[in-house]
């Protein structure tokens, strides 16, 4: 039962990588991965919220009465999301503009609430921190890879720099919502093929 802190961290990177393995948090996964920057920005913001809320929920797990635990978790999560939103507006305004409504929507991201409820409320602080960090980095990697694929094929650029010659005609389907679904489906497929025993 008792896993080491390292194990808790590593499981989020592959075994339980949120969008691909748990198929959770799909709303931001599909909506903001038009470019790799947006994907990473969203991932980092979510990781911050995840780590902070996991630590606080874990620290308060014996104080919060179980009947109002969800309400308490939401307060904690919403606070950190607002912190991220304010900091993003103050320091990385262009990123804030391109992520738009999806920053405040981290509050209802089921990964964050899911980890608070399923993990942090039952485990020690260090384990919860490792869990949040692992899941968060896994989420960031997933968003970044999806964003990279969509950006390369959809706009012909990688991190804003063109990768193909001027003759390349962007496959704009990939930038749109259906492209996100198809791309995610193919990546799930690849993950399952690779992970098959």
């Amino acid at each position: 039962m008792a896993k080491s802190i390292t194990q808790e961290f590593v499981k989020g990177l592959w075994e339980e990588i949120p969008p691909f393995r748990l198929v959770l948090g799909l709303c931001p996964t599909l909506a903001v991965t038009k470019t790799i920057q947006d994907g990473i920005g969203m991932g980092v913001a979510t990781t911050f919220v995840l780590v902070c809320s996991n630590v606080l929920v874990s620290a308060m797990r014996n104080i919060i009465p179980s009947k109002v635990r969800i309400a308490a978790f939401i307060i904690i999560i919403a606070t950190f999301v607002t912190v991220v939103e304010l900091l993003m507006q103050a320091f990385t305004y262009p990123l804030f503009l391109s992520l738009g409504i999806f920053i405040p929507l981290i509050v209802v991201n089921c990964i964050v609430l899911g980890r608070a409820e399923a993990f942090a409320s039952k485990n020690a602080i260090m384990h919860s921190l490792a869990d949040g960090l692992g899941i968060g980095i896994g989420f960031t990697l997933a968003l970044a890879s999806l964003g990279a694929v969509r950006e390369v094929f959809g706009s012909g650029t990688f991190w804003g720099a063109p990768v193909f010659g001027p003759s390349f005609h962007p496959f704009s389907f990939m930038i749109e919502a259906p492209g996100a679904f198809v791309c995610l489906g193919l990546m799930l497929c690849i993950m399952n093929l690779v992970g098959k025993k």
């Binding site: 919060i64 009947k67 308490a72 307060i75 904690i76 607002t82 912190v83 304010l86 900091l87 507006q89």
Partner: peptide, 23 residues
């Protein structure tokens, strides 16, 4: 229940207000 939620909300409100003023 009431005390925990109140304290939590008050703390969160205070934190956000000061951060908002700062930024």
């Amino acid at each position: 229940m009431v005390v925990v939620l109140t304290v939590l909300s008050a703390f969160s409100g205070g934190l956000l207000a000061s951060l908002r003023n700062g930024t």
